[in-house]
């Protein structure tokens, strides 16, 4: 239930092509405190794979990633 996740920061990645969404997410996460939650919306379907892969390799936590028609919304928690 993504609606229940509270985010500390929201970024709009709509229209950006991969890997730029990952680049922007990486930068935003670095600027957040550990434990903070980032919410992002994107349109490039590549993020459906790129974001989970990036999260796996960096050790952060993907709380949710959902496709809402053309829009992809995801929440990432900074864990370290």
């Amino acid at each position: 239930m993504t609606l229940e996740i509270k985010s500390d920061q929201t970024i709009n990645l709509e229209g950006l092509l991969c890997p730029i969404p990952v680049v922007k997410v990486s930068q935003a996460i670095k600027n957040m405190a550990v434990g903070g939650v980032l919410e992002a919306t994107a349109t490039d379907p590549g993020v459906l794979l790129d974001i989970p892969a990036w999260v796996k390799s960096t050790g952060n936590e993907l709380l949710s990633i959902k496709k809402e028609d053309k829009l992809i919304r995801f929440f990432i928690k900074r864990t370290k």
Binding site: V22, V23, S26, K30, D50, P52, W54
Partner: peptide
């Protein structure tokens, strides 16, 4: 860092290929 992260993410995709395949 970001170049390292993107390279590692590509490797993570392969290491978790089954997980990513359905998506």
């Amino acid at each position: 860092d970001i170049l390292v992260e993107l390279a590692n993410a590509a490797i993570a995709k392969e290491e978790n290929a089954e997980l990513f395949r359905d998506i």
